[in-house]
Design a protein around this nucleic acid. Structure first.
Lengths: 224, 224, 224, 224
DNA sequence: AATGAATGAGGCTTCATTCAT
DNA sequence: GATGAATGAAGCCTCATTCAT
């Protein structure tokens, strides 16, 4: 099989297992088994377990980079919905990573550096988006110099942890739960939205038919 | 040595190590070493690793039960500050638990049941507190039937994960970071607070001199 | 409690547990628990596990010595039945010992010496009993110099292992199974018994009402 | 090294050690050492200790199946000698198994089922053999409906335990001791044998030169 | 007599990783 | 590219035993 294919298979299986059981409880053995390849082969493609995590991280960052460019150029409520949906889906797909963040970053300083950089630049981009929203008259300027940054921070923490919050209750993740997470974000920003924006929210709710949400609802059926 | 003392020592050491490295990366061996006792003795006091986690959880719940009663009887901004400070400190002290929540609960169904019950009853108590705040005229009723519940949910997720958020940046936890977490909660509720309440916030910020914050600022210096 | 009582309790519990699970699978811990005493106390009474086995052995030998004297002075079929019943009961009561004989004796050379001596002298006594039976006209002399010794040997091996043989089938031990074991011994000697003896066997079968058989049928209900 | 070779080596070493010390006193560690392989490698080939015992049992049953077919088609004294010799050798080779039968079967219900089935079908085969002997005029029909079955049972118990009986005395096993065991079986059946058969026994004693007996006499010198 | 705390050796097993083929 | 055999470290746990009280 081509190197790329095997590597992709390994990463896919690893992500699934890590999401289900956490990195510590998943042995390289188990990953190899899930892929239907030998332990030896796995180590041919990845020097060690850590490098699998690294690759998963790289892949995640690549997805981020592909999706998240120039959000501030389309300052609409609809785009906001799409933005948060994308973010929540990404977190769902790599939820093991968000759960173990502290330990993983403490353990790998290079990973830590790139993650911090990602977080900062992404936060800045979101702030820029909300400033564009304000300029476009969709939202009012919160009072206080730091207020907008604070709200974005809150929305960030909310996004990062909504899925975790839901999982603790034992709920399955679904388009519905993703929509509920987004609803909380709206609740956070509601006092600052204009009448027009609030109306639009009711007309354009997060759509169950969007492609990434479909992926989410299918995912539990995967085999690895 | 008395059983109680040794058990307390083990739990203290385990909490510290778990907080630093995560439960999976801390062996019973390492805990015993940190305590300066033999492996055998550790297993004399705790049948296995899981039972250590159980005991830590029990201790945490006991602290919760001791602290959180009848919060809604004192519906003031000052009490609100204390409430959230307490909550943030608790989470800081047992942060490993909050990080690994999903895995731990998935692994232990009894623990899951008690935790769900705790979360529900505590959420209800906080909602009651905010209703009392509204009745006392400190806060305005948010529009929409579900709004207050949603805000409380957001504040919960915020509290649970603020410390994680900060730690990823590599910041040490300190009275200052606890205060910043509380500031975010205030930012969340700000649109609904009355003028009087907002004034009070400026006059009575979270005090660096409160006992639990002192504990927090000292804790990083512990030995185990 | 008096030393004697505690020691007796320990030995009783140990015999029961050893019989059920084998010496290797029974820890001193478990014995102490079964007795309701502490590990420390157990080691106060018995230096180590081996010395418990030693004591059990001594007790068994004492029972033997008490029961088996001058069997050859009463050379009747009835006495023969009683002899074998006694032997089978003893083996049942200390069956763990007979199962693990080789390992136990290999491990403890003093025990080995006393056991060999016991076996030899007991075999000689049984041979003497059968010679008396022959003299009394109850049995015919088997042809061949070694024959009687061989038959006694066979009956010995039979007695030692009948209970084991039965247990493998998962049958509970009962007066009935003891009687069946004795029936095999009779079958072995049948060709050498006179008509009168054979008649007597039918008139005086092993009695279910004899004291030691009662003990046997009650024993499974013991608590330790 | 090939998997088969290593596995065979492990099993061979394990059988030897189990025979010498009993399963409980032989650690997987010790087996690995005896084989000159690492602990890890041992567990690569056998998931755990129990599965080693299982494999040994399977191997024993295979040997049985290979050897014991259609014994009743050759109803001669010579064949009888060979039959019992084979049986005694098998028991010698796997004597640990026969000693610990009760504990092993109690511990593993699958093993128990197969063993019971083996014992029953083998006993039936031996009974069939003796019936053929009677038909062939080599042996007389014992009186009483159950007598033949009883004699076979006795010979079974005798075979199973003769080696144990001898070992307790500390005797090394040798062609001579195997022959003595067989002699006891003959003693058991002697009253029912015809003149011709008895003569034949004297002319064709168990041969020291038969292949399996050679194996037996060499075995004590094995290294592991 | 009895207890409970403590120890250290050793048992079983998992696992990441290496390497010859 | 891939495999399977092998390794050694480390993890969790049990246990006989000791000792102060």
């Amino acid at each position: 099989m081509a190197t790329r294919e095997t590597q992709a298979l390994i990463i896919e299986s690893a992500v699934n297992l890590f999401n289900q059981h956490g990195t510590a409880r998943v042995s390289t053995n188990r990953i190899a088994q899930a892929c239907g390849i030998s332990k030896g082969n796995l180590h041919y493609h990845f020097r060690n377990k850590e490098s699998i995590v690294q690759s998963i991280y790289d892949q995640m960052i690549m997805e981020v980079r592909r999706n998240w460019r120039d959000d501030h150029l389309d300052p609409t409520i609809q785009h906001m919905a799409e933005m948060y949906e994308r973010q929540l889906m990404l977190i769902w797909n790599y939820r093991f990573f968000y759960r173990e963040l502290v330990a993983l970053l403490r353990h790998d300083s290079q990973l830590k550096a790139t993650f911090s950089e990602y977080r900062n630049s992404r936060t800045a981009e979101i702030v820029r988006f909300f400033k564009a929203l304000i300029t476009a008259g969709v939202m009012r300027q919160p009072e206080g110099a730091q207020s907008l940054e604070s709200l974005v921070r809150i929305s960030w923490i909310l996004s990062d942890n909504w899925i975790n919050y839901i999982e603790v209750d034992g709920h399955e993740i679904s388009p519905q739960t993703i929509r509920e997470g987004y609803a909380l974000v709206i609740e956070l920003f509601r006092p600052y939205l204009t009448e027009a924006a609030l109306l639009e929210i009711q007309h354009y709710p997060l759509q169950a038919g969007s492609p990434s949400l479909k992926a989410a609802s299918e995912q539990p059926g995967r085999k690895c």
